[in-house]
Simulated scan of single mutants.
Amino acid sequence: MDFAPTPVRRVEVEAHDPAALQGWPFDLPAVAQLVREGLDLAPGVTFLVGENGSGKSTLVEGIAQAYGLSPEGGSTGSRHSTRVSESPLGMALVLRRGLAASRWGFFLRAETMHGWYSYLEENPRDGEPSFHEMSHGESFLAVLESRFDSKGFFCLDEPEAALSFSSTLGLIAVLQRVVATGGQVLCATHSPVLAAMPSARILEVGEWGLREAAWADLELVQHWRRFLDAPERYLRHL
Protein backbone atom coordinates (compact mmCIF):
# COMPACT_ATOMS: atom_id res chain seq x y z
CA MET A 1 0.00 0.00 0.00
CA ASP A 2 1.18 3.51 -0.80
CA PHE A 3 0.92 5.93 2.11
CA ALA A 4 2.54 8.79 0.16
CA PRO A 5 0.74 12.08 0.79
CA THR A 6 0.27 12.86 -2.92
CA PRO A 7 -3.48 13.25 -3.64
CA VAL A 8 -3.16 11.76 -7.16
CA ARG A 9 -0.22 9.52 -8.03
CA ARG A 10 -1.49 8.13 -11.30
CA VAL A 11 -4.40 8.44 -13.72
CA GLU A 12 -5.64 5.37 -15.59
CA VAL A 13 -8.64 4.23 -17.59
CA GLU A 14 -10.83 1.57 -16.01
CA ALA A 15 -11.62 -1.59 -17.96
CA HIS A 16 -14.33 -0.66 -20.42
CA ASP A 17 -15.97 -2.04 -23.49
CA PRO A 18 -13.61 -0.77 -26.22
CA ALA A 19 -16.62 0.57 -28.08
CA ALA A 20 -17.23 3.01 -25.19
CA LEU A 21 -13.80 4.52 -25.74
CA GLN A 22 -14.39 5.53 -29.35
CA GLY A 23 -15.06 8.96 -30.83
CA TRP A 24 -14.47 12.27 -29.10
CA PRO A 25 -12.57 12.85 -26.87
CA PHE A 26 -10.89 9.44 -27.11
CA ASP A 27 -9.70 10.19 -30.65
CA LEU A 28 -7.61 13.12 -29.40
CA PRO A 29 -3.95 11.99 -29.41
CA ALA A 30 -3.38 13.11 -25.81
CA VAL A 31 -6.45 11.27 -24.54
CA ALA A 32 -5.64 8.18 -26.61
CA GLN A 33 -2.17 8.13 -25.04
CA LEU A 34 -3.69 8.37 -21.56
CA VAL A 35 -5.95 5.42 -22.38
CA ARG A 36 -2.98 3.34 -23.56
CA GLU A 37 -0.33 4.30 -21.03
CA GLY A 38 -1.95 6.06 -18.08
CA LEU A 39 -0.43 9.24 -16.67
CA ASP A 40 1.77 9.75 -13.62
CA LEU A 41 1.34 13.17 -12.00
CA ALA A 42 4.16 15.08 -10.36
CA PRO A 43 3.81 15.54 -6.58
CA GLY A 44 4.05 19.32 -7.07
CA VAL A 45 2.83 21.17 -10.19
CA THR A 46 2.11 19.67 -13.62
CA PHE A 47 1.39 22.05 -16.50
CA LEU A 48 -0.37 20.95 -19.69
CA VAL A 49 0.60 23.33 -22.50
CA GLY A 50 -0.74 23.23 -26.05
CA GLU A 51 -2.87 24.79 -28.75
CA ASN A 52 -6.65 25.14 -28.61
CA GLY A 53 -8.27 21.81 -29.38
CA SER A 54 -5.25 19.75 -28.34
CA GLY A 55 -7.12 18.22 -25.39
CA LYS A 56 -5.38 19.81 -22.43
CA SER A 57 -8.57 21.28 -20.92
CA THR A 58 -10.43 18.03 -21.62
CA LEU A 59 -7.78 16.16 -19.62
CA VAL A 60 -7.94 18.58 -16.69
CA GLU A 61 -11.75 18.46 -16.68
CA GLY A 62 -11.83 14.65 -16.79
CA ILE A 63 -9.26 14.24 -14.02
CA ALA A 64 -11.04 16.83 -11.86
CA GLN A 65 -14.34 15.01 -12.36
CA ALA A 66 -12.74 11.64 -11.52
CA TYR A 67 -11.41 13.21 -8.31
CA GLY A 68 -14.96 14.13 -7.32
CA LEU A 69 -15.00 17.79 -8.34
CA SER A 70 -17.79 19.46 -10.26
CA PRO A 71 -16.85 19.83 -13.95
CA GLU A 72 -18.10 23.42 -13.69
CA GLY A 73 -15.62 24.26 -10.96
CA GLY A 74 -15.56 24.76 -7.21
CA SER A 75 -14.38 22.80 -4.21
CA THR A 76 -15.06 19.25 -3.14
CA GLY A 77 -18.77 19.02 -2.40
CA SER A 78 -19.87 21.77 -4.80
CA ARG A 79 -22.52 20.35 -7.08
CA HIS A 80 -23.84 23.30 -9.04
CA SER A 81 -24.62 22.70 -12.71
CA THR A 82 -25.92 25.11 -15.31
CA ARG A 83 -25.52 23.10 -18.51
CA VAL A 84 -24.01 19.65 -18.87
CA SER A 85 -21.22 19.91 -21.44
CA GLU A 86 -18.40 17.78 -20.05
CA SER A 87 -16.95 14.88 -22.01
CA PRO A 88 -17.39 11.23 -20.94
CA LEU A 89 -13.67 11.00 -20.10
CA GLY A 90 -14.12 11.60 -16.37
CA MET A 91 -16.45 8.62 -16.06
CA ALA A 92 -13.82 6.35 -17.62
CA LEU A 93 -10.93 7.39 -15.37
CA VAL A 94 -9.71 5.94 -12.11
CA LEU A 95 -7.21 7.75 -9.89
CA ARG A 96 -4.52 6.04 -7.85
CA ARG A 97 -4.12 8.00 -4.61
CA GLY A 98 -1.86 7.88 -1.60
CA LEU A 99 -3.79 6.39 1.32
CA ALA A 100 -2.74 9.17 3.70
CA ALA A 101 -3.39 11.94 1.18
CA SER A 102 -5.93 14.72 1.47
CA ARG A 103 -9.27 14.14 -0.27
CA TRP A 104 -10.03 17.86 -0.57
CA GLY A 105 -9.73 19.60 -3.90
CA PHE A 106 -10.67 22.62 -5.97
CA PHE A 107 -11.30 23.13 -9.68
CA LEU A 108 -10.77 26.67 -10.97
CA ARG A 109 -12.25 26.93 -14.44
CA ALA A 110 -12.23 30.33 -16.12
CA GLU A 111 -15.25 29.81 -18.37
CA THR A 112 -17.67 28.69 -15.64
CA MET A 113 -16.66 30.85 -12.67
CA HIS A 114 -19.68 33.16 -13.06
CA GLY A 115 -22.02 30.23 -12.41
CA TRP A 116 -19.97 29.14 -9.40
CA TYR A 117 -20.17 32.65 -7.94
CA SER A 118 -23.97 32.49 -8.25
CA TYR A 119 -23.93 29.09 -6.53
CA LEU A 120 -21.98 30.62 -3.64
CA GLU A 121 -24.50 33.44 -3.31
CA GLU A 122 -27.28 30.86 -3.03
CA ASN A 123 -25.25 28.87 -0.47
CA PRO A 124 -23.44 31.58 1.55
CA ARG A 125 -20.93 31.03 4.29
CA ASP A 126 -19.72 33.47 6.91
CA GLY A 127 -17.09 35.89 5.72
CA GLU A 128 -17.47 34.99 2.04
CA PRO A 129 -16.73 37.96 -0.26
CA SER A 130 -19.23 38.94 -2.95
CA PHE A 131 -17.38 37.75 -6.03
CA HIS A 132 -20.00 39.12 -8.43
CA GLU A 133 -19.27 42.65 -7.21
CA MET A 134 -15.59 42.39 -8.17
CA SER A 135 -13.91 42.69 -11.54
CA HIS A 136 -13.07 39.44 -13.31
CA GLY A 137 -9.42 39.63 -12.28
CA GLU A 138 -10.17 40.74 -8.72
CA SER A 139 -12.58 37.85 -8.19
CA PHE A 140 -9.98 35.34 -9.39
CA LEU A 141 -7.42 36.75 -6.98
CA ALA A 142 -9.96 36.57 -4.17
CA VAL A 143 -10.63 32.92 -4.97
CA LEU A 144 -6.90 32.22 -4.86
CA GLU A 145 -6.62 33.85 -1.44
CA SER A 146 -9.69 32.17 0.02
CA ARG A 147 -9.51 28.65 -1.46
CA PHE A 148 -5.87 27.85 -2.23
CA ASP A 149 -4.85 27.29 1.37
CA SER A 150 -4.71 23.54 1.95
CA LYS A 151 -2.77 20.43 0.95
CA GLY A 152 -5.43 19.17 -1.45
CA PHE A 153 -5.57 18.64 -5.22
CA PHE A 154 -5.97 21.81 -7.31
CA CYS A 155 -7.06 21.68 -10.94
CA LEU A 156 -6.87 24.89 -12.98
CA ASP A 157 -8.05 25.45 -16.54
CA GLU A 158 -6.41 28.48 -18.17
CA PRO A 159 -6.43 30.61 -14.99
CA GLU A 160 -4.37 33.32 -16.69
CA ALA A 161 -7.45 34.31 -18.74
CA ALA A 162 -8.48 36.81 -16.06
CA LEU A 163 -5.06 37.87 -14.88
CA SER A 164 -2.61 40.62 -15.80
CA PHE A 165 1.11 39.97 -16.11
CA SER A 166 1.77 40.95 -12.49
CA SER A 167 -1.23 38.98 -11.24
CA THR A 168 0.02 35.91 -13.11
CA LEU A 169 3.28 36.24 -11.19
CA GLY A 170 1.13 36.41 -8.05
CA LEU A 171 -0.54 33.15 -9.09
CA ILE A 172 2.87 31.50 -9.33
CA ALA A 173 3.53 32.61 -5.75
CA VAL A 174 0.21 31.07 -4.68
CA LEU A 175 1.05 27.77 -6.38
CA GLN A 176 4.46 27.75 -4.71
CA ARG A 177 2.70 28.19 -1.37
CA VAL A 178 0.30 25.34 -2.17
CA VAL A 179 3.17 22.99 -3.00
CA ALA A 180 5.13 24.05 0.10
CA THR A 181 2.18 23.01 2.28
CA GLY A 182 1.83 19.61 0.59
CA GLY A 183 -0.71 20.41 -2.13
CA GLN A 184 -0.67 19.17 -5.72
CA VAL A 185 -1.57 21.12 -8.87
CA LEU A 186 -2.65 20.16 -12.40
CA CYS A 187 -3.00 23.18 -14.69
CA ALA A 188 -3.81 23.72 -18.39
CA THR A 189 -2.34 26.99 -19.62
CA HIS A 190 -1.44 29.12 -22.63
CA SER A 191 0.76 31.39 -20.51
CA PRO A 192 4.55 31.24 -20.98
CA VAL A 193 4.79 33.25 -17.75
CA LEU A 194 2.86 30.70 -15.71
CA ALA A 195 4.60 27.73 -17.34
CA ALA A 196 7.97 29.19 -16.26
CA MET A 197 7.26 28.34 -12.63
CA PRO A 198 10.43 26.82 -11.14
CA SER A 199 10.42 23.06 -10.49
CA ALA A 200 7.14 22.48 -12.36
CA ARG A 201 6.75 19.51 -14.69
CA ILE A 202 5.60 20.51 -18.19
CA LEU A 203 3.73 18.22 -20.59
CA GLU A 204 3.34 19.61 -24.10
CA VAL A 205 0.05 18.51 -25.67
CA GLY A 206 -0.39 18.22 -29.42
CA GLU A 207 -0.76 15.92 -32.42
CA TRP A 208 1.96 13.71 -30.86
CA GLY A 209 -0.08 13.23 -27.69
CA LEU A 210 1.73 14.11 -24.46
CA ARG A 211 5.46 14.73 -24.21
CA GLU A 212 7.60 16.06 -21.40
CA ALA A 213 9.28 19.34 -22.34
CA ALA A 214 11.60 21.98 -20.98
CA TRP A 215 10.15 25.49 -20.82
CA ALA A 216 12.59 26.93 -23.37
CA ASP A 217 11.71 24.18 -25.88
CA LEU A 218 7.95 24.75 -25.83
CA GLU A 219 6.41 25.83 -29.13
CA LEU A 220 4.43 28.35 -27.09
CA VAL A 221 7.58 30.01 -25.75
CA GLN A 222 9.31 30.02 -29.12
CA HIS A 223 6.30 31.67 -30.82
CA TRP A 224 6.09 34.37 -28.15
CA ARG A 225 9.79 35.09 -28.38
CA ARG A 226 9.65 35.48 -32.15
CA PHE A 227 6.49 37.61 -31.98
CA LEU A 228 7.85 40.00 -29.35
CA ASP A 229 11.10 40.29 -31.28
CA ALA A 230 9.34 41.18 -34.54
CA PRO A 231 5.51 41.24 -34.40
CA GLU A 232 5.25 42.31 -38.04
CA ARG A 233 6.46 38.84 -39.10
CA TYR A 234 3.18 37.44 -37.79
CA LEU A 235 0.79 40.36 -38.36
CA ARG A 236 1.55 40.76 -42.08
CA HIS A 237 0.08 37.30 -42.72
CA LEU A 238 -3.33 38.10 -41.21
Rank of each mutant, 00 (worst) to 15 (best):
V84D: 14
R96P: 12
E111W: 14
F107G: 06
R109D: 14
S87I: 10
M91K: 12
Y117L: 11
V94D: 08
S85G: 08
E86W: 10
R96N: 10
L95A: 03
L95G: 04
E121V: 01
N123T: 03
M91L: 13
V84S: 11
G98M: 05
L89V: 07
E122M: 04
A110P: 06
G90C: 00
L99C: 05
G98V: 09
L99M: 04
L95H: 05
G98P: 11
V94N: 09
R83V: 14
R103P: 00
V94P: 07
L99V: 02
M113P: 00
E122P: 04
Y119A: 08
W116A: 01
V84E: 12
S102R: 03
V94I: 13
T82Y: 12
V84I: 14
G90D: 03
M113W: 01
P124A: 00
S85M: 10
M113D: 03
M113L: 00
W116M: 07
L108W: 03
A110F: 09
R83Q: 12
F106I: 01
S85D: 08
Y117I: 07
S85Y: 12
V94T: 14
E86A: 13
E86D: 12
P88A: 10
G98C: 04
S87V: 09
T112D: 11
P88D: 07
L89A: 09
G90N: 01
L99R: 03
P124M: 02
L99S: 06
G90H: 02
A101C: 04
P124R: 00
Y119C: 06
L108Y: 04
L95T: 05
P124N: 01
R83Y: 14
N123E: 03
W104K: 05
S81V: 15
T82I: 13
L120C: 08
T112I: 13
P88Q: 04
R109Y: 11
M113Q: 03
G98Y: 07
S87P: 11
G105D: 10
R103V: 02
F106K: 01
E111M: 15
W116H: 01
L95F: 09
E122D: 04
L108K: 02
L93F: 02
L120G: 05
W104S: 12
F107A: 05
G115H: 12
G90I: 01
L108Q: 06
G98R: 08
S85P: 09
Y119V: 08
T82C: 10
E122H: 00
L108I: 03
L93V: 08
